[in-house]
Each structure stands twice: as structure tokens, then as C-alpha cells.
Design a protein around this nucleic acid. Structure first.
Length: 899
RNA sequence: GCGGGCGUGAUGGAAUGGUAGACAUACCAGACUUAAAAUCUGUUGGGGCGUAGCCCCGUGUGGGUUCGAGUCCCACCGCCCGCACCA
């Protein structure tokens, strides 16, 4: 408790009954647990509701971001329980991954021990939040009970052709000694280690996600309750394009390269071609490289660039003229040079392009540099000059004039021209229309210990053989060490050596484990039957799926959510999910972060030193504030036990006038340990209680936006909850018989609040709902109504608050004799009749500006309202004898007089 | 460069095209106190006047639609996020 509470001993102050969250919260958590109120079981009589928050990585400590995420889910879950739904609200641990191995390498110990200890610790920290979680369904992805089923899924996927093996150039992280997915490479560096990524060729396992590109893209349209932003990001990631693929025939090219295949999304500009460009990784470039040192040097130069940030920023268009020529498909007399160019990616299309400098800025820059022709194929108008000072690249939907078109009308949009050009080329045997996707197959092999073993065996005779299902799980051996880099499974002979499941001869286990994104791609389905001895139980899955509301961070917009969507489809194909569960998350909500100011001072060399919020003190004098280090205040003798409080003012005055020890305040940023701008949920809970923390993270900002944690805001939340508790106490003491005043007004306000809060919760407008609760609390506090009305009001208030502050609400409910637990009480319903007032206040506008207001009966006819309005003194004055041009009466809302 | 989002008091933010600034913070004032804390009450967008009141201006800037625009449309400025040599 705050120091303030300790000072209550002064006898003249009436000892108020105190809100004691520590006591209240444990009491009700025990009550819920005893009654098993959050245990979910199938029940055909009730509509089901599955609410899920993205499960955490067990780092060992919860942070405010978790609190916010899980509180939002909890509000939804509890609201849905109250509205008669059968709610599933589970929790688990995304428990495989590098940090456990890093810890083992850094401090010794075993990843499993480290992980399970963290899970225990984190669960202990989460419990006091009072979340409505069915802990009986808890899963940890590192438990054989989970990953064994994941292996079973893998084998079924393998049988269905959804997984395959191929040689691939992979991104090798030299620090983590592992392969990274393309998505895990950021600016040429490993997403976790930050080390520059190298290229290596290895045999790897891949999920055939690219087979589903079209479906994963088109199905985005059906996700009405997903943020448009996330859908857009996925659509861009999948990257569909339609274009033409065709070949140029070559002149003087090496053996086997009489043709160069190119892909273009602008075949309509074919007559603007002035060169052909190939990637430095194109087979032709690689062939030339072998015999020509200059080519080799150029290609090496290109490969070097592109990984560092600086190189990307300064990247100049570089080309190397190979001397090879190609014939234009429409005019075999026209020859184009073939360049190796650094800006062409081997990964995309065919790794070769034709350059059209007239309509592509990159090609334009390139052509200018190497003095190649720039040819316009279309113009903004018929008489526009075809001479260009930069590439002409209008929107594809814009109509333009084709001066060198070959298919379709002279005036047409880019889109029409592309279609016409593809059709023309197909008819004339020049090329084919091709749809391409940017999305690659998902490489899942990782050369790590702490992940799900890939359940296959390598046999000299039989090749790659799937492990038998009855031998699952292929368990990770416990006796491993991390003193040498690389994968300990590789050096574990007794684990690695095994019998071939097909022929029984000596064979070797696959030592790669799965990307941890695999673990999180199906956990939502496992929650529906977490102990089943198959990956899912179809009946359970059919009842509970899909997740009705999924809540998590925007950082998972692409990878996790795309993989999960792919997995749901793959699980459907392999019979692990029922019909209709291809899209696992009906609604998605991405919540903002919790931020905090950063407090910084500098050392003698000007380097920043960061300070925890509790290390600084805010001193305010009049309208000036300054932050000072508490240690400074103590050093200088200003901060002593029993210090005269009035002395504070003079200190504050001194510091704000001469801010010599001022701490620099950097605007709010995501809470991070390195910047020390963190607030530990455990401290907040022990100081103020979980309800305060829950209330605050919801109250100040819309949930999709970042919320700034402030000490004063948290304090205010606590005070408010105390106030509510005190009202409850006061109502409990009231004379049951004495008549009051304004019962009706209070109940009207109550019904209005029921309506507003319900709307707020339904639409994720938690901050607005809380504002209404604040307002209603103030009304209730001032109310002189009788006992019955006040009791009804505070009980309803408790119910409306219960999704956010469940413990306080239970306590109020019990204190005033509510039946059973509030968590089981049906959600209050607003009485429509009580929402409409008998008389309404209508603002009167004159020419759109508010000038007056009138009180009229709510059901007064328009004509009457108009008469009353026109009779108003302010209206008469403004009209000054003239008659109004027009009068608009919007019943119940407004009157506008047009003078 | 491409795509998306957002600009409202000192601050976080409210506002189905209908009284802009709800609610909260911060500040100031008052009550209670020897005092402070706590608690409670009240004020607070800017400007003006003949100051029980009234008027003018005000949601990034400039236009437009409308009886009426923070909200819709167009252009611009600024900030944030995502993607990015994608052929």
C-alpha cells in the first residue's frame, strides 16, 4: 500500500472503510478456482465463444504488454460468459526457441530446466491478474505431449505432399549457427543475432505454402473482422502479379543459352525494350563468370553489395555488357544488348528482364548511364513529345495513348493494354500469360537442439523414411551439452543412431528440428482437445473452432498469421480440422503497446545513462515541473524521513527555477529493459492490486493504439476503484426504508450507462466504455436516491465493471447480497423505455451556429418544435422581423434556422 | 519510391454529418487541517466587450459539398507504420 494509507492513523480523520485489493483479489480468485467457473466443456445448449490471446514466450517475467493483451481478452471472455456463451479461454507457452539454448550456453544448465522454471515463474506472476483462463487446458510446445502430436501432423503432411525436401541456398546465420527463413532476415542480417547472413547450400525441409498462394490471398477478402492493415500486409507479402513470360533468342551466347527467358508485368511496353538485364546469379552470368575474370569480378562486386544498409541506400545501378545480343521477338532485325545488372534479383520471376527505360525509372537511370536508347511506347496525349527527361509511369488504371502499341486500342488503360498484349503474344506463340507470387515455400529446418525433432530417419538403402507413428514422440534427449557451437543432436550418437523404420537396418535420425513458427501454427486447434492422443479431436474441434476473437500484436501480422492460415488448410486436407475451419481466426484484433517516458542523464563522456521510473522524482512548482534523481535529493539532504512537507515546495521551487540536476525526459517509447522505461506489473499489483492495473491499461487510449503508462494515471485508477468501493460501503449502510429523491433520474442514467458500456465492450471501445463508467460513478456518488435505487445502481455498476475489474465487482456483489458469483450473473439489459427522456434539450442553430437551446417534450411534433424555436428570443432577435428562409428540425437532435 | 494510417486544449483522448473538447491527467482555487498528505468541491481552448450576460475565432493548411463538416470530397503540409532495386 502507498505511504498515504499508513498515515490514516491520525484520529480526527474519520477512518474510512478501505479498499484492500490484496485481500479481495485472493479471496475471489480462490472462489473462482473452487467453483471451476472457467473450465470449458462442450455444451450444445449454449452458443460457444472461443477467445484467444497470442500465447507468450516463457521469458520468465510478465510485462505490461502481456497485462494489456490478456486483459483485453479477459474483458471479452467475461463479457461473453455474462451474455450466456460457453466460453473457451485457454493459455499456453510458446516454449521452444533460441533463448533457452542461449541461456544454456551463457550460464550453463539445460534448456528444458530453464524453460520449465520460467513457465512456473511466469504462471505464478500471471495468476494474480485474475484472468478467466481454463488452466486445465494449459499446453507448452516443448512438452512431448504437444510436439509428439506435431510430429504426427508432420508425417500426415508428408504423406499428402505438403512437406518436401530440396536443396536450397539458405540464409545461414553464422552466430546462431542456424538457417533462417527469408522473413527472418532483416536488411541482410539475422533477425535475432543481427549478424550478416551468409549463403549456404543445404538440403532442407519445406512446407508447400506456395501451392496455396492464390487461396491464401483470395480468402483474405472473407476476413471481414480482420484489420484492413493486416490483410493488406499479407496481400503484399503473397505478392501476386500477372504478366508475360517469353524468351529472347540469343546471338553469340555460350552453349545451352540460345534463349533467355524473361518475365514482365508490362508486356504492353515490349516495343520500348532497349536492353536485356540478367541477375548476377543467373545461370548465364555464372557460366560467363567461369571464363571471364572481368565478369567474375563484377558479379562478386554485386553479391558483396546489398547486405549492408549503407549499400542499399547508396546502391547505384551497375551493369556489365556481356557482348551477347538478343533478337527482339517482333523485329528479328533489332538486336538488344545483354547486361548483367546488380538490381535484378534471381529470386523473382526468371532472374532476367527486358529493360524499358521509357516507362521504368530504374531502367531509365540505367539507360542514361550506359547510353542506351529510351523509347516511349505510350504518351499522356497524342501530341505529347516522346522525348523524356524521366520515365513516364502513370497508374495502370489511367487511359494513355499508345504510339508504339501492338495490341488493343490506341487509347486504353495500362491494364487493358497488358491483357491485350498477353493475348496477342499467346496467339502468336511468343509467350504465355503467367501469374507469379512473391511468396516462397516455407523452409522449416533448423540446426538447433531446442525445437521439435523432424520425425524422419535416413537409411542408406531406403533413403528418407518417415518414423512410424507408434514410435512418436521422437523425444529430445536430455543428456546434451552446449559447450561447442552447432547442434548437439549431431554429436549424440545414441540418439542419432537408430533402426530404419522400413528395413530395420542401422540408420540415422534427422537431427534438424522445426522452426518454432510451426509450434504456434496450430496451437489454437490443440487447445480444443489439449490431451487428445491425436493432434486434434474432431468433435471437439468442430464444436470450438474457429477462434471467435484472436488478440495479439501487429508484429505477427505476416508470418505467424499467414503460417497459421496455411496450417489450418493443411490440417483440413489431412483430416485434422473439420470443414469450415480453413480460416482459424474469425476476428482479429491487434492491440497497441504499453509505452513509458524515458529518463536519461549523461556520464562524463556524454554517454546516456538511463534511469528506472522509480529512481526519479517529479517536482512541480506552479506550472513548471522537473524530474530529479531521488538519489540526488537524498544526497543533498532534502529527502529525509519525517521531512517537513512544506519544505518540499521550496525544494520544488528551487529545482524548477534552476534545473541543475534535471533528468532529461525522452518522449514515450515501447517499454524496454535497455532504456529502463519499464514498469513491473508485479509492483503495480502489490501496490494497487490487479484490478487497478487492468483498469488502467484499458482506460486511457483506444486499445489498438499505444497507451502511455503514467504513475499519476495508475494512481487515479486506484483512487477511482476505492471510490466505487466506498460507494458500495455507503449504500450498504443506508436506511432501507427512508425515501430518497431522484430515483428515476438515477435509474435512467443507469440504463443509459448499460447501453453505452455494452456498445463499448462489443466494439473494442474499452476506453470510451470506461469514460461512461466514470461518469456514472460520479452521478451515483452525488445521488440522493433511496436505498433500492442506489443498490440497483451500484450492483449494475459492479456488473458493468466486472469484465475489467472482476475482483472488486465480486466483492461489491457479495457485500450487497447478490446471488451467487457476479461472474455467473447475466449481463444487465438496458430498458429501451428508460433510454428515451420525456423532455429533450434541443440546441437551436441559426445559420449553422448554436445560438440557444429549448426544452421540449420528446414526442413533440416537428411543426410544434419549429414554432417553439421560432418564438425563442435569440431567434427573433437575429431574424429581426424577417421570416426564415428554411427551418430544419431533426427530432431529438437539433433545430437549424436559416436566416 | 509504393501502400496504409493519423493530425482535436498543457497531456492521453471523446464525439451514428447535428451543442467540439466527454472521461482522465496536469495545473489553479476553495473546503477540511497547526501544517502537509488523503478526501471532497469548483475553474481551466483563445480573444473581446457595455462582464448576472453577450459577441468573435477555434479540430494541421487551403478549397469544395451541405441547412449544418473534426467527420464526406479535392489539393497541400507534417508525423507514424508497413513493404521496398518485385521486372
Amino acid at each position: 500500500m502507498k505511504a498515504a494509507a499508513r498515515r490514516f492513523s491520525c484520529h480526527k480523520v474519520p477512518v474510512m472503510p478501505r479498499y484492500t485489493p490484496a485481500e479481495i483479489e485472493t479471496r475471489w480468485q480462490q472462489a473462482w478456482e473452487k467453483d471451476g467457473v472457467f473450465q470449458a466443456t462442450r455444451n450444445a445448449d449454449k452458443p460457444k465463444y472461443y477467445v484467444l490471446e497470442m500465447f507468450p514466450y516463457p521469458s520468465g517475467r510478465i510485462h505490461m504488454g502481456h497485462v494489456r493483451n490478456y486483459t483485453m481478452g479477459d474483458v471479452i471472455a467475461r463479457y461473453k460468459i455474462a451474455t450466456g456463451h460457453n466460453v473457451l479461454h485457454p493459455m499456453g507457452w510458446d516454449a521452444f526457441g533460441m533463448p533457452a539454448e542461449n541461456a544454456a550456453m551463457a550460464i550453463g544448465g539445460h534448456p528444458a530446466d530453464w524453460t520449465y522454471a520460467n513457465i512456473a515463474e511466469m504462471k505464478k506472476q500471471m495468476k494474480p491478474l485474475g484472468l478467466s483462463i481454463d488452466w486445465s487446458r494449459e499446453i507448452a510446445t516443448c512438452h512431448p505431449g504437444y510436439y509428439g502430436q506435431q510430429q504426427a501432423l508432420f508425417l500426415d503432411f508428408l504423406k499428402e505432399g505438403l512437406v518436401y525436401r530440396k536443396n536450397a541456398v539458405v540464409n545461414w546465420d553464422p552466430v546462431d549457427m542456424t538457417v533462417l527463413a527469408n522473413e527472418q532476415v532483416e536488411n541482410g542480417c539475422g533477425w535475432r543475432s543481427g549478424a550478416p547472413v551468409e549463403r549456404r547450400e543445404l538440403t532442407q525441409w519445406f512446407f508447400k505454402i506456395s501451392d496455396h498462394s492464390e487461396e491464401l490471398l483470395s480468402a483474405l477478402d472473407s476476413l471481414d473482422n480482420w484489420p484492413a492493415k493486416v490483410k493488406l500486409m499479407q496481400a503484399n507479402w503473397i505478392g501476386k502479379s500477372r504478366g508475360l513470360q517469353f524468351a529472347f533468342s540469343t546471338i553469340e551466347a555460350p552453349e545451352g543459352f540460345d534463349r533467355i527467358e524473361v518475365y514482365t508485368t508490362r508486356p504492353d511496353t515490349l516495343l520500348g525494350a532497349s536492353f536485356v538485364g540478367i541477375s548476377p546469379d543467373h545461370p548465364l552470368a555464372k557460366t560467363l563468370e567461369r571464363d571471364d575474370e572481368a565478369v567474375a569480378a563484377f558479379c562478386a562486386e554485386c553479391r558483396k553489395g546489398g547486405t549492408t544498409e549503407e549499400a542499399i541506400e547508396t546502391a547505384e545501378k551497375l551493369g556489365y555488357d556481356t557482348g551477347i545480343r538478343v533478337r527482339h521477338p517482333f523485329d528479328t532485325a533489332a538486336e538488344l544488348p545483354v547486361y548483367i545488372a546488380n538490381f535484378i534479383l534471381m529470386d523473382y520471376g526468371t532472374g532476367a528482364i527486358f529493360g524499358c527505360p521509357g516507362h521504368d525509372q530504374r531502367d531509365f537511370d540505367f539507360a542514361t548511364k550506359y547510353d542506351l536508347p529510351i523509347i516511349s511506347t505510350f504518351l499522356p496525349s497524342e501530341d505529347a513529345s516522346p522525348k523524356l527527361s524521366e520515365a513516364y509511369v502513370p497508374q495502370k488504371s489511367e487511359k494513355v495513348f499508345y504510339n508504339r502499341g501492338f495490341a488493343g486500342d490506341q487509347w486504353q488503360t495500362g491494364e487493358e493494354a497488358v491483357d491485350a498484349a498477353i493475348a496477342f503474344c499467346e496467339d502468336n506463340g511468343i509467350g504465355q500469360g503467367v501469374t507469379k507470387f512473391r511468396l516462397r515455400d516455407w523452409g522449416l529446418s533448423r540446426q538447433r537442439y531446442w525445437g521439435c525433432p523432424i520425425p524422419v530417419v535416413h537409411c542408406d538403402d531406403c533413403g528418407v523414411v518417415p518414423e512410424k507413428k507408434e514410435n512418436l514422440p521422437v523425444e529430445l534427449p536430455y543428456d546434451v551439452t552446449f559447450d561447442t557451437p552447432g547442434n548437439p543432436l549431431d554429436r549424440h550418437p545414441t540418439w542419432r543412431n537408430c533402426a530404419c523404420p522400413a528395413c530395420g537396418k542401422d540408420a540415422l535420425r534427422e537431427t534438424d528440428t522445426m522452426d518454432t513458427f510451426v509450434d504456434s501454427s496450430w496451437y489454437y486447434a490443440r487447445f480444443t482437445a489439449p490431451r487428445a492422443d491425436t493432434p486434434t479431436d474432431l468433435e471437439e474441434a468442430a464444436y470450438w473452432m474457429n477462434v471467435d476473437q484472436y488478440i495479439g500484436g501487429i508484429e505477427h501480422a505476416i508470418l505467424h498469421l499467414l503460417y497459421a492460415r496455411f496450417f489450418a488448410r493443411a490440417m483440413q486436407i489431412t483430416g485434422h480440422l473439420p470443414e469450415g475451419a480453413a480460416e482459424p481466426f474469425d476476428a482479429l484484433f491487434t492491440q497497441g503497446m504499453v509505452t513509458h517516458e524515458i529518463y536519461q542523464t549523461r556520464d562524463g563522456n556524454g554517454r546516456p545513462i538511463y534511469h528506472l521510473p522509480e529512481e526519479v522524482e517529479k517536482l512541480t512548482f506552479q506550472d513548471k515541473s522537473v524530474y530529479v534523481l531521488k538519489s540526488k535529493l537524498t544526497e543533498e539532504g532534502y529527502f529525509k524521513e519525517g521531512q517537513e512537507p512544506s519544505f518540499r515546495n521550496s525544494i520544488a521551487k528551487a529545482y524548477t527555477s534552476f534545473p541543475h540536476h534535471a533528468v532529461e525526459v525522452i518522449p514515450s517509447a515501447k517499454m524496454s529493459k535497455s532504456k529502463k522505461n519499464v514498469v513491473d506489473p508485479l509492483h503495480i499489483i502489490s501496490n494497487y492490486g490487479a484490478d487497478t492495473a487492468r483498469w488502467f491499461v484499458l482506460s486511457d487510449s483506444p486499445p489498438e493504439r499505444d497507451v502511455e503508462w503514467t504513475a499519476s494515471g495508475a494512481e487515479a485508477s486506484y483512487k477511482h476503484l476505492s471510490r466505487v468501493w466506498n460507494i458500495c460501503d455507503r449504500v450498504g449502510e443506508m436506511d432501507r426504508e427512508a425515501a430518497g429523491q431522484g430515483d428515476e433520474d438515477l435509474l435512467r442514467a443507469m440504463h443509459k450507462t448499460i447501453h453505452d458500456v455494452t456498445m463499448g465492450v462489443e466494439s473494442f471501445g474499452f476506453n470510451a466504455a470506461i469514460a461512461k463508467l466514470y461518469a456514472f460513478t460520479a452521478t451515483l456518488q452525488k445521488s440522493k436516491a433511496g436505498y433500492a435505487a442506489q443498490r440497483e445502481a451500484i450492483m449494475t455498476l459492479a456488473q458493468l465493471m466486472s469484465p475489467m475489474t472482476p475482483h472488486l465487482s465480486e466483492d461489491i456483489w457479495a457485500h450487497l447480497g447478490g446471488e451467487g458469483l457476479i461472474v455467473n450473473a447475466p449481463w444487465p439489459k438496458a430498458d429501451e423505455a428508460m433510454l428515451v427522456d420525456d423532455t429533450v434539450t434541443l440546441p437551436i442553430q441559426i445559420n449553422g451556429k448554436r445560438r440557444a437551446e429549448i426544452q421540449v417534450p420528446a414526442d413533440m411534433p416537428k411543426e410544434e418544435v419549429e414554432k417553439v424555436a421560432l418564438a425563442h428570443e435569440a431567434v427573433i432577435r437575429t431574424l429581426d422581423g424577417a421570416s426564415p428562409k428554411k427551418v430544419i428540425v431533426v427530432p431529438g437532435r437539433i433545430v437549424n434556422v436559416v436566416a
